[in-house]
């Protein structure tokens, strides 16, 4: 146990050391370069403080950018869950429908969600543009993972309930739903990652002045590289936090599964 603890401390120390080394190197190079394109870590801290207290060139503060991005992603993501999970469940239970209409669904899957942005710009306005792009981006991973996991439900569990005289609804609620839930949430986690990437692209191209993606782009236009990096770190942080949130929920819901890895 103590050995394990010492090992952990050592790893942590090494991590700190690496991080410090990178920061020092970065600062040195930036000083030596003296280029406006190369912000020092110190500049970035100042930029961060400025973003929090004053805001960017147009006066939007960091939290407002983050909030806008977060609301857009949440709305599109929620819409994708609302359509993707029931849709996947339905087509998983009736595989014939999916097999016979694949040709309509499958090609759309391969169109990069970012390629929908120009279409969204033409057909939609304002908030709905972002929601639509995020919806497209997160729909397929959720839908496909739900669909496939329904097909892979262990038949024995279904038979246990069938032999006991269970109705179709009972089987769906108590057998199929719990057993697909882990892969559904897995699909949601993948979706969320893609969504964060797409929201950045959509905000850069989409025209509204607020959102982390837009913050990064407009700061780059006026070569405020410190703010660009602040934006990048913020988006990374939000992405990380939402990912951790899903992992946390996963661990709570799937205690029965976590136990497997202990064994």
């Amino acid at each position: 146990m103590t050995n394990n603890y010492a090992e952990k401390m050592k790893t942590m120390g090494l991590n700190f050391f690496t991080l410090a080394m990178v920061l020092v190197l970065w600062t040195l190079i930036a000083y030596w370069q003296k280029s406006p394109f190369f912000a020092t870590p110190y500049d970035i801290v100042l930029g961060f403080v400025q973003m929090v207290t004053v805001g960017d060139v147009e006066g939007y503060r960091l939290w407002s950018h983050m909030l806008h991005s977060l609301v857009r992603v949440s709305a599109g993501f929620a819409a994708a869950c609302l359509v993707g999970i029931p849709g996947g469940l339905l087509l998983g239970l009736y595989p014939k429908i999916y097999d016979r209409t694949r040709i309509l669904v499958e090609p759309i899957r391969f169109i990069s969600p970012i390629a929908w942005i120009p279409m969204a710009i033409v057909l939609l306005v304002g908030f709905s543009r972002y929601i639509f792009v995020i919806w497209v981006a997160s729909f397929f991973p959720i839908f496909v993972s739900t669909l496939w996991s329904v097909r892979q439900v262990n038949a024995v569990y279904v038979n246990v309930a069938r032999v006991a005289g269970a109705s179709r609804l009972f089987i769906i609620r108590k057998i199929i739903f719990p057993s697909i839930l882990p892969s559904v949430i897995g699909g949601m986690r993948i979706s969320l990652g893609i969504s964060w990437m797409c929201i950045v692209a959509a905000e850069m191209i989409g025209g509204q002045m607020v959102g982390i993606g837009r913050l990064i782009l407009k700061s780059a236009m006026v070569t405020r590289m410190d703010l660009v990096v602040v934006g990048m770190i913020s988006i990374g942080f939000v992405g990380y936090a939402t990912n951790e949130l899903i992992i946390f929920i996963e661990k709570r819901i799937f205690r029965w599964r976590a136990a497997v890895s202990i064994e």
Partner: peptide, 16 residues
Amino acid sequence: HNVSFVFQEPSCIPWR
């Protein structure tokens, strides 16, 4: 009818 079946493969439901 009230029928029970003990399956050959392990059939404990893992999430219960």
